[in-house]
Deep mutational scan, measured.
Amino acid sequence: GEDLPLPPGWSVDWTMRGRKYYIDHNTNTTHWSHPLESGPSSG
């Protein structure tokens, strides 16, 4: 998808195989999909 801006506290990194993933430092979790690309989340 597009390179959307990341929310505060997020960063992007790549695996050893070159796969892009996103790090949420607020909750110390990692995600394969961009936080703003996922569907609407409630709460």
Rank of each mutant, 00 (worst) to 15 (best):
S38M: 14
E2T: 13
W14L: 07
H34P: 06
G39W: 12
H34R: 05
T30Y: 15
L4R: 10
P35R: 02
L6D: 09
P7E: 03
G18Q: 03
G43C: 11
G9T: 01
S33E: 11
G1V: 13
P7Y: 01
P5S: 09
H31S: 08
R19K: 13
S41V: 11
I23R: 07
W10Q: 00
V12Q: 07
S42M: 14
T30P: 04
L6N: 01
P5T: 09
Y22F: 08
T29M: 06
H34V: 05
D24H: 05
R17G: 15
G18R: 03
S42G: 13
S33W: 11
T29K: 06
H25K: 06
H25M: 06
N26K: 07
M16E: 15
T15L: 02
H34Q: 03
W32Q: 04
H31Y: 09
E2D: 12
L6E: 14
Y22P: 00
D24M: 01
H25L: 07
P7F: 01
P40I: 13
G39I: 11
G43W: 11
Y22V: 00
S33D: 10
G9Q: 03
E2H: 11
K20N: 01
I23Q: 03
R17K: 15
H25T: 07
S11I: 05
P35T: 03
H34Y: 06
S33G: 08
S38V: 11
R19G: 07
L6Y: 03
L36V: 06
G39R: 14
R19H: 15
S38Y: 11
S38D: 10
S42A: 14
I23F: 08
W32N: 04
D24Q: 03
T15N: 08
Y22M: 00
G1Q: 12
I23Y: 08
N26L: 07
S11V: 07
R19I: 15
G1H: 13
L36T: 06
H34I: 06
P40C: 15
Y22N: 01
G39T: 12
N26T: 08
T15H: 04
S33M: 10
G18Y: 04
W32E: 04
E2R: 10
E2I: 11
R17V: 10
T15Y: 03
P5I: 07
P5D: 14
L36N: 08
E37K: 12
W32L: 05
D3V: 10
W32D: 05
W10E: 01
N26Y: 06
D3L: 10
G43N: 12
Y21S: 01
W10A: 00
T30G: 05
T29E: 06
H25S: 07
T15M: 01
L36A: 09
G18I: 03
M16W: 14
P8Q: 08
H31M: 05
S38N: 11
P7H: 00
P5F: 08
R17H: 15
D24G: 00
P5N: 09
E37Y: 11
Y21L: 05
N28L: 06
S38I: 12
M16L: 14
V12R: 05
L4V: 09
T27N: 08
G43T: 11
H34L: 08
D3S: 11
P5L: 09
E2G: 10
S42E: 13
H25N: 07
G43P: 13
H25E: 06
S41M: 11
G9M: 04
S42P: 11
R19D: 15
D13K: 12
D3P: 08
T29C: 01
G1T: 13
T27A: 03
P35W: 03
W10N: 00
H31W: 09
S11W: 02
S11Q: 07
S42R: 10
G1W: 11
N28D: 08
G43L: 12
N26P: 01
N28M: 09
T27K: 05
H25V: 04
T27G: 03
T15P: 03
L4G: 08
S41P: 14
G39L: 13
T30K: 14
R19V: 15
L6R: 05
I23E: 02
T30E: 06
N26F: 06
H25P: 02
T29V: 05
Y21W: 03
E37N: 10
L4A: 09
W10I: 00
P40N: 13
S33V: 14
W10D: 01
Y21I: 07
Y22I: 01
P40L: 12
L6V: 05
E2F: 11
N28V: 04
H31A: 04
Y21D: 01
S33Y: 14
T29G: 01
P7R: 01
P5C: 00
T27F: 04
S11F: 05
P8K: 08
P5V: 08
S38R: 11
G43H: 13
G39E: 10
S38E: 10
G39S: 13
T30F: 15
N26M: 07
S33N: 14
S11L: 03
T15W: 03
R19F: 14
D13S: 12
W14N: 05
P5Y: 08
W14E: 07
Y22Q: 00
T15A: 02
W10V: 02
N28A: 07
E2Q: 11
T29L: 05
S41A: 13
E2A: 13
L4S: 09
D24K: 02
T27W: 03
P40S: 13
G18W: 05
L36Q: 06
W14T: 08
M16D: 15
H34G: 03
M16P: 15
P40V: 13
P7L: 04
T30R: 14
W14Q: 07
G9S: 03
E2M: 11
G43Y: 11
E37R: 11
D24V: 00
H34W: 05
T15I: 03
D3Q: 10
L6G: 00
W32V: 04
P40Y: 11
H25I: 04
K20H: 03
P35H: 02
P35Y: 02
G1C: 14
G9C: 02
G18P: 02
G9R: 02
T15R: 00
S42I: 13
N28Y: 05
N28F: 05
E37P: 06
L6A: 01
W10M: 01
G43A: 13
P40M: 14
L36H: 07
P7K: 01
T30W: 15
W10G: 00
D3N: 10
S33K: 14
K20M: 07
N26I: 08
E37T: 11
Y22K: 00
I23M: 06
H25Q: 06
T30L: 14
Y21R: 04
P8I: 08
T29D: 03
S41C: 14
M16I: 15
L36Y: 09
S38L: 12
G1F: 12
T15F: 03
M16Q: 15
W10Y: 01
I23P: 00
R19Q: 15
H31F: 07
P5K: 08
S42H: 14
G18D: 05
H34E: 02
T27S: 07
E37M: 14
H34K: 04
V12H: 05
T29I: 06
W14Y: 15
D24I: 01
S11E: 09
I23L: 06
G9D: 03
G9A: 02
G1P: 12
T27L: 04
L6S: 01
P40D: 12
T15E: 04
G9F: 06
W10T: 01
M16A: 15
G1L: 12
M16H: 15
W14D: 04
L4M: 09
T30S: 09
W14F: 14
W32R: 04
Y22W: 09
W32H: 04
T30I: 15
E37I: 13
S11M: 06
Y22D: 00
L6P: 14
G18N: 05
P35K: 02
T29W: 02
T27Q: 05
V12I: 12
L36D: 07
W14V: 11
D3I: 10
S42W: 13
T27E: 03
T30N: 08
M16G: 13
D13W: 10
L36R: 07
T29A: 04
H31P: 00
G18V: 03
S42F: 12
Y21V: 07
G18T: 00
Y21K: 05
P8S: 08
D13C: 15
L4T: 09
P35L: 02
L4Q: 10
D24F: 02
D13E: 15
W14P: 04
N28S: 07
R19E: 15
T29R: 06
K20W: 03
W32I: 04
G43Q: 12
Y22H: 01
M16V: 15
H34M: 05
S41F: 09
G18S: 01
L4C: 07
P8T: 08
D13R: 11
L36F: 09
D3R: 09
R19Y: 13
K20E: 05
S42D: 13
E2K: 10
T30Q: 09
H31K: 04
W10K: 00
S11P: 01
G1M: 11
I23W: 06
D13Q: 14
S41Y: 08
P7Q: 01
D13H: 15
Y22A: 00
L6H: 01
L4N: 08
T15V: 02
R19M: 11
D3A: 10
